[in-house]
């Protein structure tokens, strides 16, 4: 039995009287790579943000590493945040900081005792790992969205988080960057102290690197089980969204006129 790092209990969330999530309960175990899938607008990103403590739900509790997140002090929250990273759908790099400053920001906050030389070396190492060292002095606006996502991953990993959330990390990326990002996420998730939660539509992640799949449908979790169990479901029980993800897109070729 693996250790549970995060628990949601009876979570509901509404936005302007619009019900998004209803009475969700789930556990995330340590050293798992869970993907959250569901139709557009089903509340996947909202669920990930609630799990990461970034959105306060209308109802319910969030327990991270055994602590009730909504009841603990601000200082205790900062201690928890030090162990969590979140990569946003649009990268969310701080636009008025350089790439280097973007990576230094969480280090400065969580490790103020770290000397500048050490910080600089760590930043360079992380950027080199994602192949973005060449833009170290650039600004986020000078990069493509794919490059921004690589930098965002480097920024997320620089504090060595134990719990990593990624919201649509592979959206609008070319095949080379997709491959690179998958390698980085996979390598990171192999450490036994890490836990990864990914919101994705990517077939590569679902069939490749993840080991749990959570399907969100009609404001609720339809299932949350191991990848092998999901992929071995009989065709009639397989949810449409997964069938469509796995099937190769086929179309009838028009006969030449």
């Amino acid at each position: 039995m693996k250790k549970v790092v995060l628990t949601l209990k009876d979570i509901s969330f509404s936005n302007n009287n619009n019900l998004i999530l209803e009475n969700l309960s789930l556990d995330i175990e340590q050293n798992t790579l869970t993907t959250i899938i569901g139709k557009s607008g089903s509340g996947k990103s909202t669920l990930a943000k609630i799990m990461a403590g970034l959105i306060i739900p209308t109802k319910g509790t969030l327990t991270i590493w055994g602590q009730d997140y909504y009841q603990i002090s601000d200082k205790e929250k900062v201690d928890i945040r030090k162990r969590i990273s979140f990569v946003f759908q649009n990268a969310a790099l701080i636009s008025n900081l350089s790439i280097k400053e973007n990576l230094i920001l969480p280090l400065n906050f969580h490790y103020p005792e770290m000397i500048k030389k050490e910080q600089g070396e760590l930043v360079e190492r992380m950027l080199e790992q994602v192949g973005m060292l060449k833009v170290i002095n650039g600004r986020p606006a000078q990069l493509s969205i794919g490059e921004q996502k690589l930098v965002a991953i480097a920024r997320a990993l620089i504090t060595k988080p134990e719990l990593l959330f990624l919201d649509e990390p592979l959206g609008s990326l070319d095949a080379t960057i997709t491959r690179k990002l998958m390698d980085i996420i996979y390598t990171y998730s192999k450490h036994d102290w890490t836990t990864v939660v990914i919101v994705t539509y990517s077939k590569e992640i679902i069939t490749g690197i993840c080991n749990r799949i959570m399907l969100l449908e009609e404001h609720k979790i339809k299932f949350n089980m191991s990848k092998n169990k999901v992929l071995s479901l009989p065709e009639k029980d397989m949810p449409d969204i997964i069938t469509n993800m796995l099937n190769k897109y086929e179309f009838e070729e028009e006969s030449e006129l």
Partner: peptide
């Protein structure tokens, strides 16, 4: 989402 990013660092 830059503000949310800051909150995510704590």
């Amino acid at each position: 989402n830059e503000i949310e990013a800051l909150v995510s660092f704590g």
